[in-house]
Nucleic acid binder design. Structure first.
Lengths: 251, 251
DNA sequence: CGTGTTATTGACCAACATCAAACTTAGTGG
DNA sequence: CCACTAAGTTTGATGTTGGTCAATAACACG
């Protein structure tokens, strides 16, 4: 579907993302732009990759929102991360052949698939690119750690506030949020699955945050009422996102 | 302190560990054995690296038990992983300069520090080694995901059982557990901080597991009473550890 | 033996889950 | 433009897992 503009958009998204976490030389950017991609669309709720699969490509998210999740024994779901355009949520499949979790579209989505072989080639030819890609997967891990700490030790209020801060800063860092507001195209049940809470409780906490003026929202559009208080409520410290400038630009 | 035997032990530990998750060529092993290390000891409870540090070396654990942890706003602690000999818990510091968490010795510990410069050199010279190291950090991330799912969605009983399974299999896979039994040199309060529970509750759950014959222990020595039931109780599936043979050898 | 840490117990409590119903909203087709 | 529907949000009532506090018992170590 519309290969020309979509592919170049894919490449620009990727470069924007990588430049938010590291510096890229001209050569590196050129090499990245030469990466072959195959665009595919997914509808809301479709699985992009499934636990147990052994994919031979990585999916670069071009448009839409995506999550990683596991389904546990009793049929409960835990979402382990949300992803925004520019992310490659299954970059890890490059060296971990069997998926230990699934990837699903939370909105209608456009994904640019890049063959593992092409990624292998570009990384072997260009040590700078191994570094950024590796770094990107390490930042994923840092985010998992932060979530783990949150689910393990933070209250429901802190968790919700923290998540809002995280999504906002990440969107900002790739130019996908306006100052003070952003799209969060996710149901409260999905938030709950990411926060280790019930959707009922998420709803109540969101109401508290609105009542206290920290945020407001209509539909899936979130407006930040008081950034400082929201950060405080979420015990949020950007450090763990390892953005290029330490994230100072966004806080 | 005793450089000769300690260093070679460090290298053997590393190689054993890496061979549990990937195949290594002779060249790769030779290169790894040439890695310069500086051995240091830490006492129980000492911090090895601290959140906010920008280490210039990676620590390869040679002897002892180590954990990664974060301290949150209200002074609560969340342990995010336990590490056993052969692990390089801060390998990530290679591409994530500022530590977003701390590393502490849970027992008297021996760590072999490897300068980042040396790791950079060995990886640039040997694509096989980038792959294993990268893979190792990806497996760390997979473990975080599994813990996240556990803390988010599993009951206390499941979490405790799951953790016991995990530690057991990981020790087995590097030859540090006998069949059916292993050392777990960790207090119940530390387990609690890893599981997102209170130490009181961990104690009660452990008693249940003993009463039901799934495990038994004296001091810090755990004996598995019924492996199948323990796995079932913990909803444990080795897949996420991404061991070389899929982990089938250990289950 | 004493002393400090860790494990265990009991009583009580709170955060959050569950269940179920009502209300909104956005979309769809007539 | 108006039912009609399905998804999502909100509310209330009630239940449970696991937390907190505090005291006691076991150890381990010098």
């Amino acid at each position: 579907l519309s290969p020309r503009p979509a592919t170049s958009k894919a490449h620009e998204r990727l470069i924007t993302k990588l430049e938010s976490i590291a510096d890229l030389s001209g050569t590196a950017k050129a090499a990245l732009r030469a990466l072959p991609v195959r665009i595919r669309s997914f509808e809301e709720n479709a699985d992009i990759v499934r636990q147990g699969d052994a994919p031979s490509e990585c999916g670069l998210l071009v448009e839409g929102f995506v999550c990683r999740y596991k389904v546990l024994g009793e049929g409960q779901r835990q979402i382990m991360s949300f992803h925004i355009p520019g992310d490659i949520p299954d970059l890890q499949s490059l060296h971990l052949r069997i998926m230990d979790h699934s990837l699903a579209a939370l909105t209608p989505t456009e994904v640019a698939f890049i063959p593992h072989a092409a990624v292998d080639r570009i990384t072997q030819a260009n040590p700078e690119i191994v570094q950024v890609f590796w770094r990107d997967t390490l930042i994923d891990a840092a985010v998992f750690r932060e979530w783990l700490a949150g689910v393990g030790r933070r209250t429901a209020h802190q968790r919700v506030a923290h998540l809002l801060c995280e999504v906002y800063v990440r969107l900002l860092s790739v130019g996908l949020a306006e100052p003070g507001a952003f799209q969060l195209p996710v149901t409260q049940a999905e938030l709950a699955d990411g926060l280790g809470l019930s959707s009922v409780h998420v709803n109540r906490v969101l109401q508290d945050l609105r009542r206290d003026g920290l945020i407001s929202y209509r539909g899936r559009y979130v407006v930040i009422g008081d950034w400082e208080q929201l950060k405080a409520a979420g015990d949020f410290d950007v450090g763990y996102l390892h953005l290029k400038d330490g994230g100072t630009r966004w806080t």
